[in-house]
């Protein structure tokens, strides 16, 4: 029996994932049970799989599709297929193992932080193959790659996701104002299964201590009732109105564009110079788009 073809699918595969093989042989009329058996050996010569020909007779035979498990080590691997009989000549075939892709996520970062203050963010890692994060850690580095914090991922999956593991980390803002561009990186060294390193931007807006309070009162323009839950954006500051439609935003003196966006309302937009505590009243007009009936009757 001679191996005439080995189909490998996919030729590039994640570490530890399934590879489908389909082997064709010639001179396939078996003389005995061993003559219909094929052995798949890995790069060390160890038997990775043993299968019998599913179809044989006459000049050719086929194994049919069967699955073997890819190694955990990344790189190009050369395995072989041969008949089980001692005189069978091995036929080599190759495939490439790649590390599992990972994605790092950063969320819940505050829109701005005062110089030197501590703050918290959430960091998460998602392996494309949904590996559990045993021994995984995340590092936060500044723009010069100085390590600011290291945190180990927890065992729990973030709500509503099916494989995102996360950690909560406390960080300290620099003493210098401005937008600091940091990075969170998943360190995957030393893991049993090879994982690609990855990172995500963690931008930190550092501001000096505010010296004014800008109070925003959000009211519905038509019925004058307070709008609760309206988002107030006075970049880089943000707040949400309370049950009375009020949000107090502590800002540094200066000129700001104020946006107030209530649920289902057209955003209020205006520019203000804030040089002392002040209150503005944002009258929010209901987003009354023409109804389907009006448009399409």
């Amino acid at each position: 029996m001679t191996i005439s073809r080995v189909d490998v699918s996919p030729e590039e595969v994640d570490a530890g994932a399934d590879i489908t093989l389909d082997i064709e042989v010639s001179h396939a009329m078996p003389a005995g049970p061993e003559d219909s058996r094929l052995l798949i050996r890995d790069h060390d010569g160890a038997v990775a799989a043993s299968v019998r020909l599913a179809e044989f007779g006459g000049e050719t035979g086929r194994s049919g599709a069967f699955v073997v498990t890819a190694p955990l080590e990344p790189g190009t691997h050369t395995w072989s297929a041969a008949g089980a009989a001692p005189d069978s000549t091995p036929a080599p075939f190759t495939f490439t193992v790649r590390p599992h892709e990972t994605r790092v996520l950063v969320w819940d970062a505050p829109p701005s932080v005062e110089c030197g203050e501590t703050f918290r963010v959430k960091l998460g890692v998602r392996c494309a193959r949904r590996c559990r994060p045993d021994g995984w850690s995340l590092e936060v580095r500044d723009h010069e790659r100085n390590r600011l914090a290291t945190v180990r991922l927890g065992d729990e999956v973030w709500p509503r996701t099916d494989g995102l593991y996360y950690a909560d980390v406390e960080l300290k803002a620099p003493d210098r104002e401005g937008l600091h561009q940091w990075e969170a990186r998943a360190t995957t060294r030393g893991l049993d299964t090879s994982h690609a390193e990855s990172g995500a931007a963690l931008n930190v807006r550092v501001v000096r201590a505010p010296d004014c309070v800008l109070t925003v009162e959000a009211v519905d323009a038509e019925n004058r009732t307070p709008v609760e839950g309206a988002q107030v954006v006075v970049h880089p500051y943000r707040a949400v109105t309370d049950a009375h439609g009020v949000a107090a935003v502590r800002v540094v003196r200066g000129e700001y564009r104020v946006l107030v966006s209530g649920k289902g309302h057209v955003p209020f937009r205006n520019r203000f110079t804030v040089d002392a505590d002040m209150t503005i009243r944002a009258q929010l007009v209901l987003d009354r788009e023409p109804s389907d009936a009006e448009i399409w009757s």
């Binding site: 996520l105 950063v106 973030w158 509503r160 995102l164 946006l259 966006s261 955003p267």
Partner: peptide
């Protein structure tokens, strides 16, 4: 966009 309405991160999974 900043002229018309608040801009929000797309960061919190899912």
């Amino acid at each position: 966009r900043e002229v018309d309405a608040p801009m929000n991160h797309i960061a919190a999974p899912p």
